[in-house]
Design a protein around this nucleic acid. Structure first.
Lengths: 166, 166
DNA sequence: CTAGATAGGTCAGCAATACTGACCATGTCA
DNA sequence: TGACATGGTCAGTATTGCTGACCTATCTAG
């Protein structure tokens, strides 16, 4: 696996640097999701259920449409997942106060407990990473991650991510 | 969506900070993969094909087993993908020089061209993010991403990521 | 040389996730 | 009233992944 390169070529280094980013994205996401997928299997739920659970917990009372705009999947996909979560008592819905077509979503006690359990695992992973790297690195991480988003999404996500804190 | 919090409670802030990480991971990965998935559809290939293509290009001459250890999927899964890539002339294989049971993998010219096209898109995304945030942020990003990995994986990935550069 | 381990393939069956397309019910609002 | 929006549902399909079972070729140690 000997690769020729010119150490003096800044273009090569740049390319190398970018590939490192791509790979870190792959590896980090791989490990980040693997652990939780195992846990979900135990509850007979999938990753899609977790995503719905997480974002319903994060934005209580949001509509199905809002959830769709976050997850960026089709309503058919989310519909199946929500049906499971409703049936199993993790989520409850109420029609919107102004527009009664809307279904607004909340976690039940049971849903909150599960969400908490799942999120804790992932939080612990971040806590470890943050502890090991320090505040400055975390700020860099945050900036780069936001920079990776589609520009159209960025402001919205930035708001959403900081939203219920600070 | 009014959430009660005590601004003086460091535990809350910590929890909030960790949740931001989790969400950034979701949003960044979502946008990072969406664009390329569209392109892949055009070639009748899936994300799994891209991953194989990418890592074969990255580690030319590696064995199927090594690829498996990177992707962390079963041989049945990778086998199907490799079959497609071989049939369509993106990848070629030779038996190992010492151990002839091994199938060592390389990209063909055609495979290199496709890999380059796909990777370029993702590189451009990273290039933009890096440009907007600066070298310090990039270093922080790198550290945190490595910190998110399973500890057992970290040294190996760090080596692999830096591997063919620096 | 033989036995067991290893690298890898293959077949069958299954599940989760996501998609498109079509169609319907219910509300809102101009 | 009619156009539009929110949301659900049904049907069909593709991709990716899994488990389990079994096969071949090859290597290596005794």
């Amino acid at each position: 696996m000997v690769e020729t390169r010119s150490p003096a070529n800044p273009l090569f280094l740049r390319d190398e640097e970018l590939r490192q980013g791509i790979e870190l994205m792959f590896y980090a996401y791989r490990d980040f999701t693997f652990e939780i997928d195992q846990l979900l299997k135990h509850y007979q739920l999938g990753r899609a259920h977790h995503r719905a659970l997480y974002f319903i917990g994060r934005h209580p009372g949001q509509t199905v449409g809002h959830l769709l705009s976050i997850l960026k999947v089709t309503k058919q996909s989310i519909s199946r997942v929500l049906k499971d979560l409703l049936e199993q008592g993790y989520v409850e819905q109420k029609s919107g106060p102004r527009d009664r077509r809307e279904r607004r979503l909340w976690l039940t006690e049971k849903g909150q407990a599960l969400e908490r359990e799942l999120t804790d695992r992932q939080s612990q992973r971040f806590a470890r990473a943050y502890r090991e790297t320090g505040a400055e690195a975390v700020e860099g991480f945050r900036k780069v991650m936001l920079g990776l988003l589609d520009p159209v999404e960025r402001a919205e996500v930035d708001k959403r991510v900081r939203g219920s804190g600070r």
